[in-house]
Design a protein around this nucleic acid. Sequence first.
DNA 1: TTGTCGGCCGATCGCCGACAA
DNA 2: TTGTCGGCGATCGGCCGACAA
Lengths: 229, 229
Amino acid sequence: LDPQLWHACAGGMVQMPPVHSKVYYFPQGHAEHAQGPVVDLPAGRVPALVLCRVAAVRFMADPDTDEVFAKIRLAPVRPNEPGYAADADDAIGAAAAGGAQEDKPASFAKTLTQSDANNGGGFSVPRYCAETIFPRLDYSAYPPVQTVLAKDVHGVVWKFRHIYRGTPRRHLLTTGWSTFVNQKKLVAGDSIVFMRTENGDLCVGIRRAKKGGIGGPEFLHHHQPPPSP
Amino acid sequence: LDPQLWHACAGGMVQMPPVHSKVYYFPQGHAEHAQGPVVDLPAGRVPALVLCRVAAVRFMADPDTDEVFAKIRLAPVRPNEPGYAADADDAIGAAAAGGAQEDKPASFAKTLTQSDANNGGGFSVPRYCAETIFPRLDYSAYPPVQTVLAKDVHGVVWKFRHIYRGTPRRHLLTTGWSTFVNQKKLVAGDSIVFMRTENGDLCVGIRRAKKGGIGGPEFLHHHQPPPSP
DNA sequence: TTGTCGGCCGATCGCCGACAA
DNA sequence: TTGTCGGCGATCGGCCGACAA
């Protein structure tokens, strides 16, 4: 999986430690994340935190849900090993430096509205996304319309009809959009990510509103009171 | 799973040895069935056949495909055990006797035609099935129509509209049929089984044309040459 | 008796501009 | 700028009898 698309899907809040950097491993947090909130680690037999070196990072995506995650291989640093006493939070500095030196390709994320997710509707493309991420549209045609191809995290290519129409004018994805919504089982509140790679290719990723595990969902389903007649 | 529905789905060719009867266990055949045609059992260390006693039989159905199968628990009979020298094929006789003494509820199987499996079509019910398996239809109504409920191997109830119409008259399942076909992923060549239990309830099972394992499929897909224009 | 076909009607899908937030 | 709505045309699902095998 392309690391840039991975980061675009994960969002700006997610930072990954570079390989060979040092991090602290928290067994308690790991156990809670894997098994749920109620855990019993044998007190005194497992240290609260373990200084480790990042041996490998693999960027992955769930085959079914497209949700991105990472597998990080950690190797514990022994106390007698050189560098053990050094401040471990140099990992953060290294991560920040590593992130800054990487190219940040243009990407755009939008949370799906009811109209976007409803069947029978298209996708309302924010102007910024259409103008900076999508391929150039020939506005001289009437109506201005083009076919947009976007590759998802699995390399599958999706085809969308991109049209600029309506009064006032706005960018829309029509044909191909509902198929995408149904196949990916997207609902209002989920987010879609468009990213343009360096060679001009377009990628598409998704970010689910409901998340499993202890990373609580920022999105709660609000029940609208029915309009009084 | 109801043994009678199980037998109706498995077909008349399938006979199960009764519990406590004696059978021969063939390790070679078992290995081929489980792993494929190429196996290497350590010659001389595993006997070609083992006399066993049937300890338990469980009638089961695949949760996804509805295909029926059975789990048979075997306990080897030791050579010094009484009855070892007795002819083991008494199992067959016992099975036949056991099968005969069981009630044989009315059941009917039909292989789905193209018209049955095609979307937009209903199911053409053979007269015998409609008259002997289905609930009595009131022919005085116009048109004669009723709702038929049938329980599948998982206990899920399916609802069909059963109508007697057309010239010449014939029995058809219309509303509800295509949903059943889609949910069960039925295609032309698969078979459907209807069975009426002693208390009058209707059951429905399916028999797939394509079978996994070494039990070769009797049904081969024949490509029809397109009609000349 | 029953498999297949064309007709036909209603439901749904999905594209559209009109608004208004 | 863009979210939601009603309209409406095209498509599809699915029920029907006609006909023939």
